[in-house]
Design a protein around this nucleic acid. Sequence first.
DNA 1: TTGAAACCCGAACGATCGTTCGTTCTTTTT
DNA 2: AAAAAGAACGAACGATCGTTCGGGTTTCAA
Lengths: 197, 197
Amino acid sequence: MLETNPNPNLDEILIRSARLMAHRGYHGTSMRDLAEVTGRSLSGLYHYFEGKEDLLYLINKRGFSSLLDLAEDLREAGFGPTEMLKGLINRHIGFFVDHLDEMRVMMFGTLELSKDRGREINRLKEVYRQNVQEIVQAYIAEARGSGLSEVELARKTYLLFGMMNWIFGWYSSGAHGTPEDLADDIFRTFTEGCAAG
Amino acid sequence: MLETNPNPNLDEILIRSARLMAHRGYHGTSMRDLAEVTGRSLSGLYHYFEGKEDLLYLINKRGFSSLLDLAEDLREAGFGPTEMLKGLINRHIGFFVDHLDEMRVMMFGTLELSKDRGREINRLKEVYRQNVQEIVQAYIAEARGSGLSEVELARKTYLLFGMMNWIFGWYSSGAHGTPEDLADDIFRTFTEGCAAG
DNA sequence: TTGAAACCCGAACGATCGTTCGTTCTTTTT
DNA sequence: AAAAAGAACGAACGATCGTTCGGGTTTCAA
């Protein structure tokens, strides 16, 4: 987070709201539901944001900003391509597992946001994606000696995102190993294929 | 499809409804919206299903049944593990691209369905997943000579699903190659890693 | 030509939606 | 102690929701 935490109450409201929205969707979750689950009255909620859309915006912005910070911290560490890719997958999966509900909300899409806010969130997403893409590019360039075309590189990056983000639908740490196991599996599968090891 | 097409009108209603629901979500799409987009009156819609939830159920059931048919047809073809895996990815991606909107609706989850219907759809999903898992297992067994543990195998299968299903969020045939290119890329990445070729 | 079935409609129902209003209680600042 | 700001509330607003009802067409086999 860039700014110092301005309001611990708002933090908890966002987390509890995301938990509900993750399972019922944005339109499927009413302000009355959110009031109940946050232990406040319906009208009392409006002290913290201007409206329901505001809440979705805040969840998205905080989530993607955190992911972006994680990625930029990592790049400053100055690892080599392999360690960089491995570290990125680890951090992405770690954050994902720690914030499963917010992540779920973030993948439902930003289509319910206003035009301006939708654009702002999409910009964050795109910056993060480019960060990851450059790490993938560096890894591939080292591993095979030559780079990939723009189209192929973008596609490979999206495939990596697919493996990482799809876990929202199936992963439970009890049945599918620790987050570290999972991150390692994704790294090995992405770099060497499913029969590696 | 198992039964012969019973109603071409219903087919078109489902397709148009899925197109709308794919972009606004289930709760975000009203019966009035659906009436307008299908060129019918609000009450006229109820001639084709008992209620809104019915519509979501039908979209899910038809979609997963078709996918399942595709997989079972393939298995009857009696290919070897490699051709089987390649064929499965190709069919899955092909169907996905041809029915992008319905697929989007199907991934929003079955949580808005009644308990019984949710279970029925989840059963279809699980059967399909097991079909794919057995194909993955056969491929890995051949490629590395030994099998994988249950946990590892399930994880690998989910990673493959991740690469295939995540395309709902980014793929456009104009910017990212043909569906065949995409399917081939997924096959190669899953079997040999991102630096293959 | 009659009758049943399939198809379609306008109008309205009660319920719930997001939001606003005026007010009260509590905490912080002066 | 007085004033200002923060936090919370019940009650109500107009709008929209999914669904139902009673009645219309159209289609086509008997």
